[in-house]
Lab assay of single mutants.
Amino acid sequence: VDNKFNKEQQNAFYEILHLPNLNEEQRNAFIQSLKDDPSQSANLLAEAKKLNDAQA
């Protein structure tokens, strides 16, 4: 993981990586967004979790 991520951002990265119901395309999009703007990690994680739950 890129060293410019802080602890919260790293946690978001790993959580998104391991959400079971996202397809690869969705997962990659969230990860790319996280890399583009790490400050949005909490929002991105919340969105990813919502999508993950919706696809459960």
Results as ranks from 00 to 15, higher is better:
Val1Cys: 10
Val1Tyr: 03
Val1Asp: 07
Val1His: 13
Asp2Trp: 02
Asp2Pro: 05
Asp2Lys: 00
Asp2Leu: 04
Asp2Cys: 08
Asn3Phe: 00
Asn3Met: 02
Asn3Tyr: 00
Lys4Trp: 11
Lys4Leu: 06
Lys4Thr: 12
Lys4Asn: 15
Lys4Ile: 11
Lys4Val: 14
Phe5Gln: 01
Phe5His: 03
Phe5Asp: 10
Asn6Trp: 03
Asn6Val: 02
Asn6Pro: 01
Lys7Trp: 06
Lys7Arg: 04
Lys7Phe: 11
Lys7Met: 10
Glu8Asp: 08
Glu8Met: 01
Glu8Phe: 03
Glu8Asn: 02
Glu8Thr: 02
Glu8Trp: 03
Gln9Val: 08
Gln9Leu: 09
Gln9Gly: 02
Gln9Ile: 04
Gln10Gly: 05
Gln10Ser: 05
Gln10His: 04
Gln10Met: 10
Gln10Val: 03
Asn11Pro: 02
Asn11Glu: 15
Asn11Ala: 08
Asn11Ser: 11
Asn11Val: 11
Asn11Arg: 11
Asn11His: 08
Ala12Thr: 05
Ala12Pro: 02
Ala12Glu: 04
Ala12Cys: 09
Ala12Asn: 04
Phe13Glu: 05
Phe13Cys: 09
Phe13Met: 15
Phe13Arg: 09
Phe13Gln: 11
Tyr14Arg: 13
Tyr14Pro: 01
Glu15Ala: 07
Glu15Ile: 12
Glu15Pro: 01
Ile16Val: 07
Ile16Glu: 01
Ile16Leu: 14
Ile16Asp: 00
Ile16Met: 08
Ile16Arg: 00
Leu17Gln: 14
Leu17Asp: 09
His18Ala: 12
His18Asp: 10
His18Gln: 14
Leu19Tyr: 04
Leu19Phe: 09
Leu19Gly: 00
Pro20Asp: 11
Pro20Gln: 06
Pro20Leu: 08
Asn21Met: 07
Asn21Gly: 04
Asn21Ala: 14
Asn21Cys: 15
Asn21Phe: 10
Leu22Cys: 00
Leu22Gly: 00
Asn23Pro: 07
Asn23Asp: 07
Asn23Lys: 15
Asn23Met: 15
Asn23Leu: 14
Asn23Gln: 12
Glu24Tyr: 06
Glu24Thr: 03
Glu24Gly: 07
Glu25Met: 12
Glu25Asp: 13
Glu25His: 12
Gln26Pro: 00
Gln26Leu: 04
Gln26Phe: 05
Arg27Ala: 07
Arg27Gly: 01
Asn28Ala: 11
Asn28His: 12
Asn28Ser: 13
Ala29Gln: 11
Ala29Ser: 07
Ala29Trp: 12
Ala29Phe: 14
Phe30Asp: 00
Phe30Met: 13
Phe30Pro: 00
Ile31Tyr: 08
Ile31Trp: 05
Ile31Ala: 11
Ile31Gly: 03
Gln32Val: 12
Gln32Thr: 11
Gln32Ser: 05
Ser33Arg: 11
Ser33Tyr: 07
Ser33Leu: 04
Ser33Lys: 11
Ser33Asp: 11
Ser33Asn: 07
Ser33Trp: 08
Leu34Asn: 01
Leu34Phe: 11
Leu34His: 00
Leu34Val: 09
Lys35Leu: 05
Lys35Asn: 12
Lys35Ala: 06
Lys35Pro: 01
Lys35Ser: 05
Asp36Arg: 07
Asp36Ala: 09
Asp36Pro: 01
Asp37Met: 10
Asp37Asn: 07
Asp37Ser: 05
Asp37Gly: 09
Asp37Thr: 13
Asp37Val: 10
Pro38Asp: 05
Pro38Tyr: 02
Pro38Gln: 03
Pro38Trp: 04
Ser39Gln: 06
Ser39Asp: 10
Ser39Met: 12
Ser39Glu: 15
Gln40Phe: 07
Gln40Pro: 02
Gln40Asn: 05
Ser41His: 15
Ser41Thr: 13
Ser41Gly: 02
Ala42Asn: 09
Ala42Val: 12
Ala42Cys: 15
Asn43Asp: 09
Asn43Phe: 10
Leu44Pro: 01
Leu44Glu: 02
Leu44Ile: 08
Leu45Phe: 06
Leu45Asn: 02
Leu45Gly: 02
Leu45Ala: 07
Ala46Glu: 12
Ala46Asn: 10
Ala46Ser: 15
Glu47Ile: 14
Glu47Trp: 11
Glu47Arg: 06
Glu47Asp: 15
Glu47Pro: 00
Ala48Met: 02
Ala48Asn: 00
Ala48Ser: 09
Lys49Leu: 05
Lys49Asp: 04
Lys49Arg: 03
Lys49Pro: 00
Lys50Asn: 12
Lys50Thr: 13
Lys50Asp: 08
Lys50Glu: 15
Lys50Tyr: 12
Leu51Glu: 13
Leu51Cys: 06
Leu51Ile: 15
Leu51Asp: 05
Leu51Gly: 02
Leu51His: 15
Asn52Pro: 01
Asp53Asn: 13
Asp53Val: 03
Ala54Glu: 15
Ala54Asp: 15
Ala54Asn: 08
Gln55Thr: 07
Gln55Ala: 12
Ala56Asp: 06
Ala56Thr: 15
Ala56Val: 07
Ala56Ser: 14
